[in-house]
Amino acid sequence: MSERLARFGLPLAVVGLLALVVAVGPNLGLRIAGSDPAPAGRLIEVLDRLPADPAVLVGFDPDLGTYPELRPTVRTLVADLLDRGAGLSFVSMTPEGRALAVAEMARLDRLGAPRGSVTDLGFIPGAEAALVSLAGAISGQRPAAGPPGLDELDGTDLAVVVGGNDLGPRSWVEQVAPRAAGLQIVAVTPTVLLPEVEPYRASGQLAALLTTPGQGAAFRERTPAGSFPALAERAGPSPAAIAAGLLVAAVWLASALLAGGPARRLLRPTARR
């Protein structure tokens, strides 16, 4: 009975507890916005420097697992760009990214994004080759291959890369930046990619980068509601739900350390099996 309880009862109880916290959603004075507001400030500076009615290419390749971490920030960023009169062209190089892009574009259409402000460039296979083709189109060359609309990317003012999948900001910096001189690239990625993309922010190859929920929350706090409040997801995830999830994880891991006798095991060599 206890084994069955541990196998099925505990996970169900955890899911139930988290669902309850998400549903009730008490704030409890918790706060996601991190202590470092600089990344959000840098992104806002880049956006402020854009010309009127900028042409923005959105490389949309998050993955299904980590996209919920980015979603509120991405939606707020898209709403802010539309508020600045931007024309957004969505393109994906991964199937997962394409699926999520379709969902996001359907949402924009449903919630009243201005007609003609969003262009669907679809999915381009070929990974790095697709990025090379895209870079050629941005720099005014006739695209070697790709969907209709690719030849209208000449004069793109900004590339927004929504990362998470294989073809994230690193691939854009490697393949697109050298071929599309002057193009500014900003990125929103999940925390798990921070070690990979942080050097590109430090070197200036990424004009701005948001990588953690705290940085995303800081951006959402500093971005005005604008003309499309319905498009932005300003609230973000419930801090209480995040805290509850982290506490569950902490208790679970701590109990494992106690059950495993960490002091005893750390002091003896790893058992060979």
């Binding site: 994880a249 902490a250 679970w252 891991l253 701590a254 109990s255 494992a256 350390l257 059950a259 495993g260 006798g261 960490p262 095991r265 750390l266 060599p269 790893t270 058992a271």
Partner: peptide, 20 residues
């Protein structure tokens, strides 16, 4: 992670402790 820590092994314990 829990199973890894309970089974012992220095690497698993260090991993779980760092995650904690």
């Amino acid at each position: 992670a829990r199973r890894s820590a309970i089974r012992g092994g220095r690497e698993g314990l260090v991993l779980v402790a760092a995650a904690l």
